[in-house]
Design a binder for these strands. Structure first.
Length: 507
RNA sequence: GGCCGGUUCGUCUAACGGUUAGGACGCCAGGUUUUCAUCCUGGUAAUAGGGGUUCGAUUCCCCUACCGGCUACCA
């Protein structure tokens, strides 16, 4: 059996989106599971679409996810360089070889001429295809004398090299997920392999590099399925068919509502990130939110993504990366597109966040406090994190749920005031203040004992006391238990807030 | 339009051709609780339609419908 070598091959045209991360993840899982190598190759053959920072963004994103490589543009390796623009000089010989063998030819038609043809055909509701049916009428080395071709080449006339698609052949691709996919060659077109700027197109470059880098499996998005037969043809024409990688085309990630491929717009529209990390467009300065900055933890992000297109036979849904590596298999990838569900992403995050050791939660909280310039010098953050951990879905919730510990309420929730603040309330709270004043050890057991005795003594319900009490200390009707809150706040602050409530809440 | 691919609860999905079609998210209800949330228990809800093949189709085949992808000197 041949050594497993898989690659993730993004083009640096912007931030990596969810679908791209999932493709990288599945490649990674497959490589690790089979003890193979995982390679990061940058496909930047389109210099016109190059976006500064995109490559670094891709590396950082996958790093945040815990997806690691064995070779790649950032690591080097035995097949360096791993950036196609730096491999430029390599591709030409293969294009030449194809021409020499009659599998490709020079085409001198200008982009404008072809655009024109497409428009004309479109006007007649037809599709223009540069292929077996039309190539004889076009301006290429198949239709002009050899001397003329030589002359054009000599004089520096711009040209491209196109594959010469065979006329009546059925081309079959074996896909690990979809089985046999076949297509009639007459429906394919003479795709450009080598551009007039001296760069190969994706089609040539990916085949050449996969061959040279000894890639064993190509796991990529379904959008590549239609061009897979072309790639098979290329392997055949280059004489590499026996070492052709296996293919697996992953189903697409779809937008949560309606239909269609998940896009950046959907995130803006529905309020969830579509990128792992925040991204600032270097040209427009437009900012797109990221999972990391929104407060997701990588474990949740990965677990959520892993289940979008793959599933074990069992009902198990919670997986660590190690467990994923152990469980993953290409054969259990599904064929149909998966709608992304932001709600489920939140559920995963709540699960992983609240399961974190408290010292990690403290670190998150400290960072949030620091960012807002809130002092936490004399506060037991560990205790606070324990009290709010179950209430936090995203990391920033750690602070949102505990803010009142650090900052006394400046206003009081009107609805709660209306509901909980009665005529007798001030009297009840004044009494409570007196009782608490005399509590020596201001900890939960003593506070609880004193409060309950007070309620019993007064002959009132717990709610009559606790709801207004909470309103004074928190400002609203949510949060951890009151005895916990009071003990964390301390006697002095608790009494101060009761007094503030008595002074400021009016009905 | 052409080609390729796909179709099980609202969503992600499970089910050697034989199951009361299972799980999870969401939603709803109940329980716990001084509030909110968590948590626990229960409930809701699906095999796109039509033909075959078969003793028996979610499962195999065909057709239709619908959805998606591709159709650049972009990847």
């Amino acid at each position: 059996m041949r050594e497993v070598r898989v690659r993730f091959a993004p083009s640096p045209t912007g931030p990596l989106h969810l679908g791209g991360v999932r493709t990288a993840l599945y490649n990674y899982l497959f490589a690790r599971k089979s003890g193979g190598k995982f390679i990061l190759r940058i496909e930047d053959t389109d210099q016109g679409r190059f976006v500064p920072g995109a490559e670094q963004y891709i590396i950082e994103s996958l790093n945040w996810c815990g997806i690691t490589f064995d070779e790649g543009v950032h690591l080097g390796g035995p097949y360096t360089p791993y950036r196609q623009s730096e491999r430029k000089s390599l591709y030409r010989q293969y294009a030449d070889q194809l021409v020499a063998d009659g599998y490709a030819y020079y085409a001198f038609d200008t982009a404008e001429q072809l655009d024109q043809l497409r428009k004309e055909h479109e006007a007649k509701k037809q599709t223009f295809q540069y292929g077996p049916q039309t190539r004889q009428q076009l301006y290429n080395s198949l239709t002009i004398p050899a001397e003329k071709t030589a002359e054009l080449l000599e004089s520096g006339t711009p040209y491209v090299i196109r594959i010469r698609i065979p006329e009546n052949e059925t081309i079959t691709v074996t896909d690990r997920i979809r089985g046999l996919v076949s297509v009639e060659s007459s429906l394919l077109d003479d795709k450009v392999l080598f551009k007039s700027d001296g760069m190969p197109t994706y089609h040539l470059a990916n085949v050449v590099d996969d061959y040279l880098m000894k890639i064993s499996h190509v796991i990529r998005g379904e959008e590549w399925l239609p061009s897979a037969p072309l790639h098979v043809l290329l392997y055949r024409y280059l004489g590499w068919e026996s070492s052709m990688p296996e293919f697996a085309h992953l189903p697409l990630l779809l937008k949560p509502d309606g239909n269609g491929k998940l896009s950046k717009r959907d995130g803006d529209r529905l309020g969830f990130p579509v990128f792992p990390l925040r991204w600032t467009d270097p040209f427009t300065s437009e900012v797109s939110s990221g999972y990391r900055e929104s407060g997701y933890v990588p474990e949740a992000f990965i677990n959520m993504l892993s289940l979008l297109g793959w599933h074990e036979e069992s009902d198990k849904e919670l997986f660590t990366m190690e467990e994923l590596i152990d469980a993953f298999s290409i054969d259990r990838c599904s064929k149909s597109g998966a709608k992304f569900d932001p709600e489920k992403a939140k559920w995963f995050n709540h699960h992983y966040l609240s399961a974190k050791p408290v010292n990690e939660l403290v670190k998150y909280l400290e960072e949030l406090l620091k960012k807002e310039g809130i002092s936490s010098a004399s506060v037991n953050l560990e205790r606070i994190c324990e009290l709010v951990r179950d209430r936090a879905v995203l990391i920033p919730d750690l602070l949102e749920q505990s803010r009142f510990f650090f900052i006394a309420p400046k206003s009081y929730d009107e609805k709660v005031v209306a509901k909980a603040w009665k005529a007798e309330t001030p009297g009840i709270l004044s009494g409570l203040a007196e009782v608490l004043q005399s509590v020596e050890v201001f900890e939960v057991p003593a506070i609880e004992e004193a409060s309950k005795a007070y309620v019993a003594d007064k002959g009132i319900g717990m709610g009559q006391l606790m709801n207004p009490f909470r309103l004074c200390l928190v400002g609203t009707s949510a949060g951890p238990g009151m005895f916990d809150i009071a003990s964390v706040l301390g006697k002095e602050e608790t009494l101060r807030r009761i007094q503030a409530g008595l002074n400021n809440i009016v009905i």
